[in-house]
Deep mutational scan, measured.
Amino acid sequence: MDVFMKGLSKAKEGVVAAAEKTKQGVAEAAGKTKEGVLYVGSKTKEGVVHGVATVAEKTKEQVTNVGGAVVTGVTAVAQKTVEGAGSIAAATGFVKKDQLGKNEEGAPQEGILEDMPVDPDNEAYEMPSEEGYQDYEPEA
């Protein structure tokens, strides 16, 4: 019985440690998101679009440190934060509304985080759909 109880105690310690790591990862992701939003706020009209992409990228980098179902929630929060940063930029006159959601080359930025393969159960990952990809044929 002692062996059984000791095993359960060790398992509990492992769960607590994993929860603490997840909590730490979420806190880091939130900190990076805040950094990115402050970065966007300090940019001029020309830099705002690039700044919004930076927020998304920093958040995406930190999301990889967070495991399990938390990833889905962090990704949703990050996307809403990026959308909010863009709205703030438009409201303050840093950028025109028609410039939001495009990178410096004018290509749409939507789907940055949505296409990231995420499995809350950590069982399997699927690649994003290939609808947006084109076949590449090298020139002879």
Rank of each mutant, 00 (worst) to 15 (best):
Val71Met: 10
Gly36Phe: 03
Lys60Trp: 02
Phe4Arg: 01
Glu139Asp: 14
Thr33Tyr: 08
Val26Pro: 00
Lys96Asn: 05
Asn103Gly: 08
Pro108Gln: 01
Gly51Lys: 09
Lys45Gly: 04
Ile88Leu: 14
Val48Gln: 00
Lys6Asp: 12
Asp119Thr: 15
Val55Met: 10
Gly14Glu: 11
Val63Pro: 00
Glu104Ala: 02
Thr33Ser: 05
Gly51Cys: 03
Gly14Arg: 14
Lys21Ala: 11
Gly25Met: 15
Glu105Phe: 09
Gly47Met: 06
Lys43Gly: 03
Glu131Asp: 05
Ala30His: 04
Ala56Gly: 12
Gly68Ser: 15
Lys12Pro: 00
Lys80Asn: 08
Pro117Lys: 12
Ser42Val: 06
Ala140Asp: 14
Lys96Ala: 13
Leu8Val: 08
Val15Asp: 01
Asn122Lys: 04
Val48Met: 08
Lys32Val: 12
Ala27Thr: 13
Val74Tyr: 09
Glu61Tyr: 05
Asp98Ile: 13
Asn65Gly: 12
Pro117Thr: 13
Tyr125His: 13
Ala69Glu: 01
Gln62Met: 02
Asn103Phe: 05
Thr64Val: 04
Thr72Val: 10
Thr75Asp: 07
Gly93Met: 04
Glu123Asp: 07
Ala29Ile: 14
Gln99Glu: 13
Pro138Ala: 12
Thr72Lys: 05
Asp119Phe: 15
Ile112Lys: 07
Glu139Ile: 12
Ala76Trp: 09
Val49Gly: 04
Val26Met: 02
Ala78Leu: 03
Gly14Tyr: 10
Gly14Ser: 04
Ala124Trp: 08
Val70Trp: 10
Gly86Arg: 11
Ala91His: 10
Gly106Asp: 11
Glu126Ser: 05
Gly41His: 02
Ala27His: 05
Leu100His: 13
Ala89Arg: 14
Thr92Asn: 14
Gly132Val: 14
Val16Ile: 09
Lys60Val: 06
Glu137Met: 08
Lys6Pro: 00
Glu105Ala: 05
Leu100Gln: 12
Gln109Val: 14
Gly47Thr: 14
Gly84Leu: 08
Glu28Asn: 13
Phe4Ser: 00
Lys23Thr: 07
Glu130His: 09
Leu113Cys: 03
Lys102Cys: 00
Tyr39Phe: 04
Gly47Leu: 14
Tyr133Pro: 04
Asp98Asn: 15
Tyr125Gln: 15
Gln109Pro: 09
Ala90Met: 03
Ala29Pro: 00
Lys6Leu: 02
Lys45Arg: 02
Val3Lys: 01
Glu61Asp: 15
Ala90Ser: 07
Glu137Leu: 05
Thr44His: 01
Asp98Leu: 10
Glu137Thr: 11
Glu114Leu: 06
Val118Glu: 12
Lys60Pro: 01
Val77Ala: 08
Ala53Asn: 11
Asp135Glu: 10
Lys45Pro: 04
Val52Pro: 01
Val66Gln: 01
Ala76Gly: 07
Ala124Asn: 12
Lys58Tyr: 13
Pro128Ala: 07
Gly14His: 09
Glu114Cys: 05
Pro138Trp: 10
Asp115Met: 07
Pro120Cys: 10
Val40Ile: 05
Glu61Pro: 02
Asn103Glu: 04
Pro117Leu: 06
Thr44Ile: 10
Tyr39Pro: 00
Asp2Val: 02
Gly31Tyr: 14
Glu123Ser: 11
Tyr136Gly: 08
Ala11Tyr: 08
Ala56Leu: 11
Thr64Trp: 07
Ala19Lys: 05
Ala140His: 06
Pro108Asn: 13
Ala53Phe: 00
Met127Thr: 04
Val16Cys: 13
Lys58Cys: 15
